[in-house]
Design a protein around this nucleic acid. Structure first.
Lengths: 372, 372
DNA sequence: GAAATTCGTGAATCGGACC
DNA sequence: AGGTCCGATTCACGAATTT
């Protein structure tokens, strides 16, 4: 990695430590940087998860939770003070036309978003990272927590921020890029592991996510500051895409792993690194979607091709075959006394006096989704 | 529509105005309700949009933006004070095990989320409503704003909130429902229009969204309060799904439209929305009952699916795995060296040469109980 | 060697009835 | 209010292992 520093103009601040990882407290480190010197901030701050006891999977294995010291805060007030401090520091070093990205979950993102508005940042979008493979909800007590939220905000209301509209559109089948992004978690070879095969950092982000951020909202040569550098995904992607980075990380071990990782990155010609395409599998359709779309009605009856079996459609997308309630598949299997059944190709509804297979109604929903 | 009021117990508050639309300021109206009287709140508050000038499409037509007086706030502080007031009022009237849903966009949802955390609400999920057909970003200066965010929060950390996990899973191809929901906007016949064909309300929400909320997190007969009733989507869906509602709306014209709309709603047949029995709600059966009913015999042997472990049934409904005596769960856990075990789904008995799970024998007992 | 099966794991605020 | 114990609960993907 080529380390380079820009000369300081005033002498009050040291030169800009480009393409380097600074080990230390992020607030102090940012305050040591000259004002208006950075084009973009990408921040992945602690989420303040507030976990209770252990969580076990149905197979009784233990979930490896984020219980690191750096994610412990005594109260919302303490977390807010911390958030205000690093966001203020970032705002000072941002150029007038610069912008900030921050990622979080429902535990912290509302605090971060409010404070950033209070500080004068101008919100441009909130972006939803839809996870292709999220961890399930093992106890069945909530919806699967299948996304995280990013906020994209300009330094101020009048900032002339960077946005590569045409590039994003071209990488998205000539459709405008939406605010919901579907990307897999960071796994496999991309996930940093130590000699023992243990993950180096509990929350390493996928490079595709950072790449989409930088490609859409920064220019080659831009300086990207990451105050919570971790194992350096921001640095690795910045180097690959011809951006400069400044990384700040409190933990020596993370910083060391980040440096080694970034050294191994081979820069790409930006044209070669198009926006990561989202996986093109046929979208799964919930039977509930057919109810919601009005293609079938709650209270209506479904039946098999020989009209030997019949069931009632319920408003929640289950079927009732008295007294059993279950999915189209489960109830189809039950009706036939079989261990399994594909409800899409078993059940029909009546349309204009003729039976119509659920599967063909599913096709209509898929056509709508493809058009969107 | 049948309007009904529950009698007030104390006389301090008037009776609960069920299935009615109250015209007036929402905070005053909520404060007139008795405490701990409502099962769920659904709120679609003003978004504080902060639009600048007019917005025009590429063909120079004017976008009909939200510029109503009710969405005007002088500052974040004023919006926060308003938000704190209505959220506090809602929290007072929520039952201890009640929950609140609120929907918003990046303009306001971070303020709302922070404040509800500050007030003691306990966040359960943030839900992303992915719009099938969002309005494009005409200027091409940002990502298409293709989603809105809902927050689902219990009244407090220890609230025993309602969640119909199995129903949602059944309507979703037997997979857990995720936190990202894909639904179309409210358009077509569902969108209320006046005689001139102009939409009555600028932000009418789709009924499918409300239906999914109520089906997942309320029970038939529950009371749902909507402090920003608008044209009454909450009321229409509540009536269809056998819930009760209390609507509060400031604008007489919206309230009038809502009443007419709800009057025209035909409730679904109860079987289409009745809460399906889940394992958690089914009556508890003692293993001793199986012995007493003769479904298993004292002295008979139970074994696991791979016949690696075996134990003896005792007349008192315990198992003997020499030298230990204990419940089917304890002995199952002990046999496997695990901290816990569900004996119902672990142990089998032999019937006609084939292994039969205790859980299926329990099903027979339950069927007998239901028939009796 | 190819295909099928098993195993490991990811930012998680993940009971409740009864005594 | 606190302790005890019943018994309900997982999806996608990649890697490793077996057939």
């Amino acid at each position: 990695m080529k380390a380079k520093s820009l000369p300081s103009k005033t002498g009050l601040f040291p030169a800009l430590p480009l393409d380097q990882v600074i080990v230390g407290d992020c607030i102090a480190a940012i305050e040591a940087l000259p004002p208006a010197s950075v084009d973009m901030v990408f921040a992945d701050p602690p989420y303040n998860l507030q976990l209770g006891g252990d969580l076990r999977r149905p197979d009784d294995s233990l979930v490896d939770a984020v219980d690191d010291d750096w994610d412990k805060f005594a109260s919302f007030a303490e977390y807010d003070a911390f958030t205000r401090a690093w966001l203020s520091a970032c705002r000072r070093v941002l150029k007038p036309d610069g912008a900030l990205w921050v990622i979080g979950s429902y535990h912290n993102i509302f605090r971060v978003g409010s404070i950033l508005q209070d500080l004068g940042f101008w919100m441009l979008n909130d972006i939803v990272w839809r996870k292709a493979n999220p961890m399930p909800n093992f106890r069945g007590r909530r919806f699967t927590n299948a996304h995280e939220t990013l906020i994209w905000a300009a330094r101020g209301e009048s900032s002339k921020y960077t946005f590569h509209y045409e590039a994003l559109k071209g990488g998205n089948d000539d459709l405008q890029m939406r605010s919901d992004w579907y990307l897999p978690l960071c796994t496999g070879d991309e996930r940093l592991k130590d000699e023992a095969g243990v993950k180096v950092h509990p929350t390493q982000k996928p490079e595709a996510l950072l790449a989409r951020v930088m490609l859409s909202a920064s220019n080659p040569g831009d300086v990207v500051l990451d105050p919570f550098f971790g194992t350096g995904t921001t640095g690795a992607v910045a180097k690959a895409l011809g951006r400069r980075f400044i990384g700040i990380e409190r933990e020596q071990s993370y910083a060391r792993a980040a440096r080694a990782r970034i050294d191994a990155v081979e820069p790409l010609p930006p044209a070669a690194f198009a926006t990561a395409p989202s996986k093109r599998t046929e979208p799964r359709v919930a039977f509930l979607s057919l109810v919601e779309a009005g293609l079938v009605k709650a209270g209506e009856r479904v039946f098999d091709v020989k009209r030997r079996h019949e069931a009632l459609i319920r408003a929640d997308g289950t079927l009732l075959l008295d007294p059993v309630v279950g999915s189209i598949h489960k109830v189809g299997a039950l009706a036939q006394g079989l261990p399994a059944c594909n409800g899409w190709t078993f059940w029909h509804v009546e349309r204009d006096g003729a039976p119509v297979l659920l599967d063909s109604l599913r096709g209509e929903i898929r056509a709508q989704m493809a058009a969107a």
